[in-house]
Nucleic acid binder design. Structure first.
Lengths: 333, 333
DNA sequence: ATGAAAGCGCTAACAT
DNA sequence: ATGTTAGCGCTTTCAT
């Protein structure tokens, strides 16, 4: 592997001159430039990014911390973040926490300022003080929700509003016994979506029936199926269900089918996330569709702003709200 | 940010001693060790990985080159590769090619030896000579199939066999008009799966009907739906369909439903990949289930072997076959 | 405009 | 067992 020194020797100039050419410095004698460029070509020189970053004091990488790539929502988000970061020549280091607080904490702690310039974190179980682990010098953007109350940049949709829209849609369908699947003791998104659900029911003058709020400790398809099975076994089963993500909803659809309950005739179902698979489920799923690309771009932009203002340490944390829409499909038609 | 030097000064020892402690070297005077550990703690020292790698002549990163993270199969694989690589303290840089040859080529070319120690590539459209782009010094493992004939390590299941198993399963169900969705002009996996399909039909004494082989230029759900719609419009529609991946199959299920065709009664459907969603589709999908974790681990192991033998340049390329199974679900019951 | 040399933080010889 | 020093490849003063 050719180094600057090799190229310099071959071209008969100093490393400085070669470095100047490589970095597009303007004032290089045309003759020297030519010889350097020749040497560059014949050696096939490629800068050692690690060395450059060591010297420059930056890393050229962002961390993306999320629960699990195999979860469709995060797979889709990760792909978009990769693209957005790539536009600014950042590599992305993806870290999976598997949604456990332990791994979320240790991941945050391991994010030394040497590995990354900034981090995009999608926390699931973190507590506020876990963020002390973080080096204060590196900018962090939270995706998803303010699950904890820390002064950190945040990008995402208005979850309370979105949940209200989803629930109101069911109300407008004429449903009166509307259940919710996905309540969770300390997951921020869950709390907000539950709030939105309650707000919509209250606004419609419908009673809040505690047996219609089903917890889900995880948000996988199986959990949705279990929750739906439980709801259908109630003496008075619901005629509509708002699931806090699409996976729960997909599981709910299956449970409904297995219980001989027709969707949407007997039970209407709404999801959240607009996973690609939701357009192809049977029936296809009405769902809240966040603008994921907007989330990815906003997150990267926020980071760029922070970095350009020298860590932007004493800048007030921002809260960027991205658009969403309600995608109406067969499960509520 | 504390450096080795800072810690050394604080502990009153040389950098060497600190380095020794940090790297778990055994022979350090207990007294010194104690003082170093104290200094380490009070400074909150974290090694600068970049500097360490620069010195050691490695980068600490692997590249994972794949079409798109939002495709469930690749999302799942990426998660597993991340875990497998993490066990050996590798970061993973994921590059999306979006399945275009152009981006696959430029990605290969950009993989300078400074950024990564090795690469795991899941090519879709590459030609053999595109691999010339690659620095010969860095080990590459191909995932998926020998879509091109290059002397490079490869990990994956026996696609021909798997396709035969899938098709034979349909034969054993008593189906006689078995179609295939997913033929593709130059995608390696497609060719192999088509071969397996043909072999199974021939072995069963069934005719190869050219109108039952449907091309799919992409492998998304929509393509499967289109292909199935086409098959069902045939004068003599098939009574079974083997789809070359689960997404195609999911699309096929939907098209069948929309045409009022019952699965599996009228048409049995088999997929390939065992995406998580396939256990929850309606009906759930019979599919070939590759052992994805085995693929991820084998790929990382292969890389470790190559690297330990100094680039292993003159080692013959290996072809590791990982296990798979046929997961029988409702779509063929 | 370009060269010489220092130094980013670390590890590995070499010396003691 | 530990200190000293060179150097990984690069950029950046500081000279010239």
């Amino acid at each position: 592997m050719a180094t600057l020194k090799d190229v310099a020797r071959l071209a008969g100039v100093s490393v400085k001159t070669v470095s100047n050419v490589v970095n597009g410095y303007e004032f290089v004698k045309p003759d020297n430039r030519r010889r350097v460029e020749e040497a560059l070509a014949t050696t096939g020189y490629r800068p050692n990014i690690g060395a450059r970053n060591l010297r420059r004091g930056r890393t050229g990488s962002l961390a993306l911390v999320l629960p699990e790539l195999s979860i469709p929502y995060f797979g889709e988000m990760a792909g978009l973040v990769l693209e957005a970061a790539g536009e600014h020549e950042w590599n992305v280091l993806i870290e999976q926490t598997l949604g456990t607080r332990d791994r979320e904490r240790s991941t945050l702690a391991a994010l030394g300022p040497h590995m990354i310039d900034a981090a995009i974190v999608s926390p699931e179980a973190l507590h506020a003080r876990d963020f002390d682990q973080l080096d204060p010098g590196i900018p962090v953007v939270m995706l998803g929700e303010h699950s904890v109350d820390v002064p950190i940049d945040h990008v995402g949709i208005d979850n309370v509003l979105a949940a209200t829209v989803a629930t109101s849609h069911l109300v407008e369908l004429g449903r009166r016994r509307i259940a919710a699947i996905g309540a969770h003791p300390y997951r921020g998104t869950a709390t907000q979506r539950l709030d939105g659900y309650r707000a919509a029911l209250t606004a419609a003058g419908l009673p809040l029936r505690h047996e219609y709020i089903v917890q889900a400790l995880n948000y996988h398809r199986r959990d949705g199926a279990d929750a739906m099975a439980h709801l259908l076994s109630l003496p008075e089963p619901p005629d509509a269900v708002f699931c806090f993500n699409d996976l729960l909803a997909i599981g709910a659809l299956r449970a409904a089918a297995e219980h001989g309950v027709s969707v949407p005739r007997d039970v209407a179902v709404v999801g959240f996330d607009n996973n690609e698979e939701s357009a192809y489920s049977m029936p296809s799923l009405t769902t809240i569709a966040p603008d994921k690309a907007a989330i990815a771009h906003s997150a990267v932009d926020l980071i760029r702003r922070r970095i350009n203002i020298n860590g932007g340490q004493n800048l007030a944390p921002e809260d960027v709200q991205t658009p969403f829409s309600l995608e109406i499909r067969e499960s509520t038609r």
